[in-house]
Nucleic acid binder design. Sequence first.
DNA 1: ATGTTCTGTCCGAGCACTTGACATCAGAGG
DNA 2: CCTCTGATGTCAAGTGCTCGGACAGAACAT
Lengths: 197, 197
Amino acid sequence: MTSFADRTKRRLRDELLDAAQEAVVAGGYDGLRMAEVARRTGVSRQTVYNEFGDKWGLLEAVAARETERFLLDVNNAIAEQPNPIDGLRAAVERALTLAGENPLIKAALSQPGSDQASQLLTTRGQQVIELAHLRLGAHVREHWPEVPAEDATSCVDVALRVVISHIVTPGPPPAAVADQLARVLSPFLAESRRLHV
Amino acid sequence: MTSFADRTKRRLRDELLDAAQEAVVAGGYDGLRMAEVARRTGVSRQTVYNEFGDKWGLLEAVAARETERFLLDVNNAIAEQPNPIDGLRAAVERALTLAGENPLIKAALSQPGSDQASQLLTTRGQQVIELAHLRLGAHVREHWPEVPAEDATSCVDVALRVVISHIVTPGPPPAAVADQLARVLSPFLAESRRLHV
DNA sequence: ATGTTCTGTCCGAGCACTTGACATCAGAGG
DNA sequence: CCTCTGATGTCAAGTGCTCGGACAGAACAT
């Protein structure tokens, strides 16, 4: 169904992103050279600009792809738990674990010239919040329809911001944070549920 | 090192060959439609012609690729046996087994409009003989350098023609043929070796 | 001050693929 | 017998993407 040209374009994008990501992991934002990405992929420098506009666009695309993968993984963790509280705990733990192991996040946080990288993390944080809202909200609505949308939103919102904070400023182990959050938030959800039954 | 364009061209060729091979397996030579190959690959009909010239060229390319894979597999079987006689037996058995399981060969042999397909098998047979000569000859020279090149060539030649005959006209199980050939040919090789020590 | 390196932009040439048309041939059916 | 259909093979014009080279500007080191 999809034309060969379409698939090729996708592959080109993917390979460029691979090269770029590798460069960022190795040397941070400053270590990312447009010419190097082009060379590694076997393509002209111009082609990289055609595809991503400018260096910032390339970096953003790298982050977007990684974000999507990240969320996909976290979503799987949620889906395995029918109980929203357990889903919350699982998601938090998985997210923190993944973040701790992710070389791209490490690079963004630790590299010297990370003015840009941290800004990117903030931007991505916004996107993560939006996407995760949809997914987590749907999960709550599905299993606990009694809980009003507003309350579910509030709960998810708080959890996400705490998680992002823990990613940016690492602290206790993932499981501990997950338990803590679940303990703190579950009474709120449970009561909301009881009130609107 | 290789440019993205090169890799893409290779991939295009491969996908076209995949589609063509599938068509041949399903419907023989007559079942192979240029337009269908193009459609399945997501490319224009003209592109198929640009790549392979004409229908016969496409079919030949399919056969060539499959031949290469076939020989690669057989070569591995040979390489595992230091003793040339054992190598011969292993190669014969592997070749007949592979041929018996290969859908493309089955299609070429069983399809109705197989005037072309059988001719193709003949052509390929020639190529197989040439390539296998190089490989088998090298194997004998490596392990039994005493055997003159002419004798090794004769031995390999006979074996190859018998094998091809068994592929075209299936008979006893592969292992039986392999043993038979090994038994028949080994005295010749052994004596030649003894004489030229 | 000067040279170097990288970003970002522009443009002309080239190449592969697409599209549509056409000639030709074989088989099927009226 | 004639025609209609579907397939192969060829051609030319059009299109999009990529390439290569050149250039200006900014940051930085010597």
